[in-house]
Design a protein around this nucleic acid. Sequence first.
RNA 1: GGAGAGGUGGCAGAGUGGUCGAAUGCGGCGGUCUCGAAAACCGUUGUCGGUUUGCGCCGACCCAGGGUUCGAAUCCCUGUCUCUCCGCCA
Length: 429
Amino acid sequence: MHDIRAIRENPAAFDAGLARRGLPGMSAELLAADAARRANILAAETAQAAQNVASKEAGSAKSAGNAAEFERLRGLVGEKKAEIALLNDAASVEDARLRDMLMRIPNLPMAEVPVGADETGNVEVRRWGTPRLMDFAPREHFEIAGVKPGMDFATAAKLSGARFVVLKGAVARLQRALAQMMLDVHTSEHGLTETWAPVLVKDDAMEGTDKLPKFAEDSYQTTNGWWLIPTSEVTLTYSVAGDILDAGALPIRMTAHSQCFRSEAGSAGKDTSGMLRQHQFEKVEMVSITTPETSLAEHDRMTRCAEAILERLGLPYRTIVLCTGDMGFGATKTHDLEVWLPGQNTYREISSVSVCGDFQARRMNARFKVPGGKPEFVHTLNGSGLAVGRCLIAVVENGQQADGSVDLPAALYPYLGGKTRISAAGALE
RNA sequence: GGAGAGGUGGCAGAGUGGUCGAAUGCGGCGGUCUCGAAAACCGUUGUCGGUUUGCGCCGACCCAGGGUUCGAAUCCCUGUCUCUCCGCCA
């Protein structure tokens, strides 16, 4: 959420930031709402002050036994009360209107983010690994002979419908191995704290991490009002909501492996085959809470943490910086990691690492303080480290052999009981 | 699911209708003392919003939201969270 005071002080800069995102200026409208809101507050508080005075006087009159004066003041208070009720209603309407407007405006990009309208404006920053030469036509993950027995879309459809999958045997084991490996690397080598949190959360948590109000249709809600998290960014980030953290405790670095749920509204027809885009998937998420001074360096660090997983698995990837038009709602800068998928003959997103500045912190009132100083909003960052399902796809597509078997990365052997490949018949061996 | 108890400032803990943003203790900060420190003593110490050039002034906040009352931390209702006991349960 944006700071209305900052907008008040420099509306032109705010509109310029929106323009870089390809959005029209909104400061005039915001400032009008802000002025209306403040006028209402002033009127309501003035009336309130008058009522408080009259109440006090009424008390004195009563204890002095002056019944007539008491009755007069009682009447006055009654009038004020009615007046205040109206003014307060108006004030809270204006306040809610302004807040809702602010909540729906995306974060502004950092100065260094390239300007662009859509994904064609993204800029590649580095590339790692070389796609393996295959002397056969590479297959997509769901077409590989060794994978097919363990990836059952028919049963998933029976259970849940489209965009779900049932994994079995070697493939299920492989997904578990990947998640375990990621958590182990992040905790023991990258210094993140392993965390396990609910996947059902309240409105506040979704709002604080900017999934609401604007993107309600992208997530699922239970009949009693809980939301199923679209990513554990929600739980990890919101864990510091309302806190005033000791500056010495920062950065806080967390990681979690969780189920994620997305309605994929608006994705109809996209990636309909295979398990690239599912309503329920597994992800290992990374979240950092930092000071404003360190957040940009932390962004690069977090990007490296995600890249390290791909490198360990020997998966070719490229890292891009998203342009202003392609960034997510809460981000000020985003790196996407795209992994090589031979079956699609292209790079596909497997991780997105964003620095959100104080955008989420302001929404959820998460602050830090140096001893003796004033509380200040923290900066928040989040990134996939990695999307486990997509990583599974990348591993089998890149490791596929002409005969339909799959060679697995050595980094996973310890997590697979020493097994090294999936046979063309689908057996781990 | 049933029964009961409770949510007050950084912490502990008073306050059960008015002058209470809230006693007291601890902690924090500043000072006196000291070569320095400790102890002791003195002072000070919440957040948010509005308004003002500024001093300041005003408003809100004792879990949240409603209500009663001239007036609510205090009374009533609802919600929520915590604790205890019972039941159920992976």
